[in-house]
Write a protein that binds this DNA or RNA. Structure first.
Lengths: 138, 138
DNA sequence: GTTCGTGCAAACGGTTTGCAACAAT
DNA sequence: ATTGTTGCAAACCGTTTGCACGAAC
């Protein structure tokens, strides 16, 4: 993974310590964090960083195409550094989001749906990660 | 479409005028409204209905399986009365959401992804409805 | 010294909750 | 009398915005 400083400079974004801390985390995780989770994590290495700066930086990264937002959790946006096309699996119990490789699934007919011009698409799957038994009724 | 009073009684929900007004609208639209949009619409026929009652009723309908929520718009939940499996298309410009019939698309491999037990899945497509030319740069 | 970035607090929009009045049984 | 429903207002949570201070050019 290219280091944070490079990534920022190459995108024409001034590499401040706060931004470096955010980039270091968010571009190297596959945990699909929310902004709040990024804040929590980054505070460990950069204790004074503000909520506004985190949101601001995340939005900059999105606008530079280094990060994508995904609508996979109720009430919040999650950030995904994997910007190439892929699918997602959401665990019913934990809410954890997993990347599914593009060619784990094959689709036919998606770009020829009558009346629509499809720019992009993804499969969103929900269920359980295998090997866990169903949670007991509380 | 079965009338609202029946739907409610059959689900064991007391059919109050407010609930009937909500059901009348939300179970017969394909517009994927938000709670706020339901409120606006329903106020026309039931001017005194409160925001809390709308949210409450929508949540009851979801818990009874008469309605489903979908994560297709940033910052808000949309409601979909079509509870059978189907796909969605979201217009990039207008944000409008269209139902795509289940068999407009065929998928292979989706329930055998290594390590995951898929309970349900859908394809989410984004693009433009055909026949509209691309919006001019503002 | 002007531009850009930060941190704080306030504002904002969608949703939930607490509660008192009220209707149905 | 008890239970369930409504409407209002306040609370809540994720996100954005306004602004003054400070750093970088």
């Amino acid at each position: 993974m290219a280091d944070a400083l490079q990534v920022l400079s190459q995108s024409g974004v001034r590499p401040t310590p706060q931004r470096i801390a955010v980039v270091d985390f968010v571009l190297s995780t596959d945990a699909h964090p929310t902004a709040e989770e990024v804040l929590q994590y980054v505070r460990a290495t950069c204790p004074t960083i503000s909520r506004a700066t985190v949101y601001n930086t995340l939005n900059v990264l999105v606008s530079k195409g280094l990060l994508r937002t995904q609508l996979l959790r109720e009430g919040t946006i999650v950030f995904d550094p994997k910007v190439e096309a892929h699918h997602h699996f959401v665990d019913d119990e934990t809410g954890r989001i997993y990347d599914i490789p593009w060619d784990a699934v094959t689709i036919k007919g998606e770009d020829s749906v009558e009346g629509f011009t499809v720019r992009e698409y993804q499969v969103v799957m929900r269920g359980r990660v295998a090997g866990r038994r169903k949670r007991m009724k509380k």
